[in-house]
Amino acid sequence: MIYIESFIDLLPRHKYDTDRVEMIKKMDRDKILPLLPGLLEWIQDINWPVAPSVLKILLTFPEEIVPHVQDVFSSNDDNWKWFIMHFLVIELPVESKVQFKEYLTRVSETPTQNELYEELDEIAKEILETL
């Protein structure tokens, strides 16, 4: 019988778990794909020690990360959206960024109170200018 590790077992266990992130970096791309949604959670705060390394991994999957980012954009976590927009989306190639155009346009033109508070309208405008 072959033991297959759960995807959750491969993800960082805490914000200082840079060893696990280094291990993920060495994995084959196809093995990292199922980890993308879990990895995205580790950039909820770019100040966490694991966040910059996780961000580098995520940026190597510009197309594959799009649906997972769209899930975050559908959530109510405007603070997480701020980190995603400032550190991930703005760095993606145009082909990936353009897939967020509808959301970015809505946020830039008719932001909610919380989006205004988090200044999501400003970063949305900045990203739209790169399209």
Rank of each mutant, 00 (worst) to 15 (best):
M1A: 12
I2S: 05
I2N: 13
I2V: 15
I4T: 12
I4Q: 11
S6N: 14
F7R: 05
H14A: 06
K15M: 12
Y16W: 11
Y16V: 00
D17W: 06
T18D: 07
T18H: 02
D19V: 13
D19T: 10
D19M: 09
V21P: 01
K25Y: 07
K26I: 02
K26E: 13
D28P: 00
K31I: 12
I32E: 04
L33A: 04
L33K: 13
L33I: 15
L40Q: 02
Q44W: 12
I46H: 08
I46K: 00
I46C: 03
P49R: 10
P49V: 02
P49Q: 12
V50K: 03
S53F: 07
S53C: 00
V54L: 02
I57V: 10
I57W: 04
L59E: 13
T60E: 15
F61W: 13
F61H: 09
P62C: 04
V66T: 06
P67N: 06
P67E: 13
Q70M: 13
Q70H: 08
D71F: 01
D71P: 00
V72F: 11
F73I: 00
D78H: 13
N79I: 07
I84L: 15
I84E: 08
M85Y: 04
H86P: 00
H86Y: 13
H86M: 10
F87R: 15
L88F: 07
L88H: 07
V89Y: 12
I90C: 12
I90T: 10
L92K: 08
L92M: 13
L92Q: 08
S96W: 11
V98W: 01
Q99F: 03
Q99W: 05
F100T: 08
K101M: 08
K101C: 05
E102V: 14
E102Q: 14
Y103T: 13
T105L: 15
T105P: 01
V107K: 04
S108M: 05
P111Q: 07
P111L: 11
P111E: 04
T112Y: 03
Q113H: 14
Q113Y: 12
N114P: 00
N114H: 05
E115S: 03
E115T: 01
Y117C: 00
Y117N: 07
E119H: 11
E119P: 00
L120A: 06
L120W: 01
E122W: 02
I123L: 06
I123D: 06
K125G: 04
E126G: 01
I127L: 03
I127W: 03
I127P: 11
L128K: 09
L128V: 10
E129H: 10
E129R: 12
E129Q: 12
T130F: 02
